[in-house]
Computed example of a mutant assay.
Amino acid sequence: MPGGRLTQQDRQRIAAGLADGLSYAEIARRLDRTTSTISREVARNGGPSGYRPQQAHQATVQRARRGTRTPAPPRAAGVPSGAVEEEIIELAVRSGMPRMTARVHVDLLLSEDGRRTAAELTRRLNVSPASVSVAVNFLVEHGYVRRERDPQRRRDIYVIDDDAWYHSIVVSSQQTLASAQAALAAAETIGLDSPVGQRLSRAGTFLERVIQDMRESADRWRSLLT
């Protein structure tokens, strides 16, 4: 069973893994640790962008000498801990979402009213405005959030609400449907009597039917979000 205290060398390898863009799961595998061990270590020592192995090790040694654990800052009732937030981010990354985009998405998702400005996201995540801009553009494009305009302060507000899940499925299905239609068109061009044409036709038809079922299911269960 993986376990034991993290060593200074372990922490250096964690920092190297973060710098290389590795997932927590991959870093954990290389260190023979659990993913939750890595996510807790990073969350309590500056987060993915602020993790410093030397400072993290010194802080752990000091806590051990005092025989106390670092007190967690007070959190609103029902808000997940930092480790849980990191786990949610990790799941999003595994599904293919860029890490920075996942961080922005989860921060919006866990906000009390599901609303943040770009400036708030920049400050909360301690990242550049450009990074936030790229992330929110991705989220808006894929239907995960919507953009609202504050006419009084002339700024954009990014909003995630329950219906966002429905819209994200619709956007995703439209993109997949376009691929299916492209495959079917290519099959017609190449010729349905050829092996390649038949292969493309089967793939396009399969994707088209699956997307149709998914859209019908999303429409049928959309009322659960209201």
Rank of each mutant, 00 (worst) to 15 (best):
A183E: 12
L22N: 04
L125F: 04
D219A: 09
R215L: 15
E41V: 08
R40F: 08
A185P: 08
Q58G: 08
S133D: 12
Q62T: 12
Q54F: 11
S39P: 08
L121S: 02
P151L: 02
N137G: 10
H57F: 15
L177F: 03
L121K: 01
R44G: 03
V106E: 10
N137L: 13
R115H: 08
A182I: 05
M1E: 11
E216K: 11
S179I: 08
R94E: 14
R29W: 04
V196T: 13
A185Q: 12
T35S: 13
L139D: 01
H57G: 04
R75H: 06
L224I: 13
G17D: 00
E120R: 09
A19P: 07
G143I: 07
S95F: 09
E87G: 12
R65Y: 10
A180F: 05
A28I: 06
D107C: 15
H57C: 05
G197D: 05
S194M: 08
I211K: 04
R149N: 08
A183L: 13
V79Y: 07
R65M: 13
S168G: 03
D219W: 07
M97Y: 01
L177K: 07
L192I: 08
T117I: 07
P48I: 07
G191R: 02
T117V: 05
R99D: 07
L200P: 09
P151R: 00
Q175H: 10
E86Q: 15
P98R: 00
V170P: 03
V136F: 05
R33Q: 03
Q212K: 13
S39T: 15
D162C: 11
L91S: 11
E112N: 08
T68Y: 07
D150Y: 02
D20R: 15
T176W: 05
Q54V: 15
P73W: 06
S49Q: 14
R99H: 02
E87Q: 13
Y51R: 02
A28Q: 02
V134K: 13
T70I: 09
I157D: 01
S49A: 15
E120S: 10
A187I: 06
A178R: 10
M97P: 04
P195W: 01
V145I: 14
V106T: 14
M100F: 04
I88W: 11
R75W: 06
Q175S: 12
R52D: 15
I160T: 12
R199P: 02
P53N: 01
G4C: 06
V136K: 03
L225N: 02
I160V: 15
S172L: 11
A92I: 04
R52Q: 14
W165F: 14
A102Q: 02
M100I: 13
R29H: 09
P71I: 01
G46D: 03
L18M: 06
T60F: 10
S36Y: 06
S128G: 09
E148L: 14
R44C: 03
S179T: 07
V61P: 03
P74H: 01
L91A: 12
V145Q: 03
Q12W: 09
L224Y: 12
H105P: 05
A119S: 11
S23C: 05
Q181Y: 08
Q58S: 09
V132D: 04
P129N: 01
T117A: 02
R29E: 12
A19C: 05
S223R: 12
Q175N: 11
R29C: 05
H105I: 05
D10M: 05
V134L: 15
